[in-house]
Amino acid sequence: MQRRNFLQGVMNGGVAATLATLFPQAVLADWPKAAFESKDVNGALQALLGATDSQSEQVDVTAPDIAENGAVVPIKVSTKLDKVESITLIAEKNPSPLVASFNYSGDCAGFVSTRIKMGETQNVIVVVKSGGKLYSAQKSVKVTVGGCGG
């Protein structure tokens, strides 16, 4: 934003609007910025969940073996675990590996499905937090055309 526009905005009484533009995180205070900006998997997990160790059981992840279009890769996660607190999706080699984090405040039935972008052939890692413990699963996806750049 240019200084002139900024000052005009302030003088026009658009103070609140200007501040909201400059500090969007004030509106979304809970968005885990450090975790999303982390460039490696462990850094993202540590920032988001406070731990990186996980057991590899009881989590199923469904993704295509080969994704022709990396811009749209369907991912399905299901688990029989009780008291699921959160389900986290990570694309290991994406520029920012943390893709999404689903947090449940009520009784989650242990299922989530979405579509993500994958820049290259890599593992999708799913981490489920249940009863304070982490459980994970991964699935390798071969990407023919990447979905993260022009």
Binding site: D30, F102, F111, R115
Partner: peptide, 18 residues
């Protein structure tokens, strides 16, 4: 019941089921 935090790593025109 659910709060999801997303990044731009989620595909265009997002689909979410849970």
């Amino acid at each position: 019941v659910m709060t999801a935090y997303l990044s731009s790593g989620v595909s265009k025109n997002p689909y979410v089921a849970f």
